[in-house]
Amino acid sequence: MPAIVPTTTAKTDAPAASSGSSQRRSRTAYLLLLPGLGWLGVFFVIPIATLFFTSLQAPVEGRSGVYQAAFQISNYAQALGDYWPQFVRSFIYAGLATVLALVIAYPLAYFIAFKAGRWRALMLVLVVAPFFASFLLRTYAWRTILADEGAITTALNALHLLPEDRILNTSIAVVLGLTYNFLPFMILPLYASLEKIDPRLIEASGDLYARPFTGFRKVVFPLSLPGVVAGTLLTFIPAAGDFINARLLGAPGDSMVGTAIQVNFLQFRDYPIASALSFILMAFILVVVFTYIRRAGTEDLV
């Protein structure tokens, strides 16, 4: 049995190296960030700034499609004056689509998270699988499904449920298209937050509350709120800016703000008005995002 010797020695100096090495570490971090963030700086931030400057430009007298630097705030008044119906429609359509998507997505996300068992991985693949097929063609396919002589329209017409006797080329088709297109963006964040919930909590709530729905309302739904919020943002934002569904499925009178931006930029070449419209949309989104960050911080964003 060896001897255990109590050791007493003068204290050594505390290591002073740590601050130097942490500086070196953060330099590595900046080097790693540089290319990607630089790219985003040049091709995301600067364009947004350019968008803002362009939105204030004034036309050059006598030369159509040519503009010069100015401070023409009236562009915003004009953009809103001319296109407020498009803004209103965009938010209504996107809002309706988001609510519909939430209602449709929740049961599926819930099922995958708690009941799918060994089918879980497969079902998740199926949720993202539509992304493998062309967005435009999938949207266009709704023209076939909702066609005036098609089964769905005929059936609903027989019940006199359609105000315009048709779905295609109405705002209903636009909202349905938006709902369909952005549904996976609702399902995935919902699933992500539901999956974190301990299934035993649900059993426990089954014990506590007589009716399953009460248990759901008091336990599961509150815990899934981060997913609801994320899914709502991820559905609403792209839907509000979309112009494909309005163009392919709606009537000319269903145009949305995205349509207005596209037409002004690419057809009328009225860059200041187009930029003003785009910037208003961006500003609106920024308000939403910053409200969210004030509540939840940035760490869970990405």
């Binding site: 995301f44 350019t50 800016g241 112009f243 995205g258």
Partner: peptide, 23 residues
């Protein structure tokens, strides 16, 4: 950094496309 990475995902594609075009 987190914000700069998140914003492009939260920005509608029309805004991304049109702002780059503006640039």
């Amino acid at each position: 950094t987190n914000l700069l990475i998140f914003l492009p995902m939260a920005t509608p594609e029309v805004v991304l496309g049109s702002s780059l075009l503006a640039l």
